[in-house]
Amino acid sequence: MTDTTEARPDPLPSAAPPLSEPSSWHELHLTVNGRPIRAQVESRLLLSDFLRARLSLTGTHVGCEHGVCGACTVLVDGEPVRSCLTLAVACEGASLRTVESLADEEGQLTDVQRAFHEQHAMQCGFCTAGFVMSCTAMVEAPERPAEDEVADQLSGHLCRCTGYRNIRAAVEQVLDDRYGKAGEEK
């Protein structure tokens, strides 16, 4: 990631097309996947489009663009949020994590990613990045989330392939590893 955009229009080849209408621009400072970023952004730029088009972090998928499907979920200051319902400019000073932050440079998967792989918790994979980010926040919680809290988190994501059974199995695998099986001390 090399975005340290100073001039406009954005020099990246993936930059958004030229504006047809005037709008205000702002200098934005934030941290994305541990790296400090400085960029010029238009007021109306959604966080999802900032990540995908300006930073080329296309692991964050965009489904419905009005907050229903959850595919675009990223972590803002540790909490899962809809990047399509968040303005990039409103993230001044925030620390963001996307799915690209998970596996390390050697391709070593995180517990959540490995569990999704082992439990076959995906088919087409379009929704997966969003699920994985919400699940990452869940397994980083200080206490094991209750079963209905897990269901509540997962209900914020639409998956049209799996029927959710394997996704739940993946979450439970990670939670069992971390906190011991439900109802028994580790």
């Binding site: 205000s24 007021s43 109306r44 409103a90």
Partner: peptide, 11 residues
Amino acid sequence: MKPAPFDYVAP
């Protein structure tokens, strides 16, 4: 599905 242009301030 993109907002129309607007200005933004965060007082």
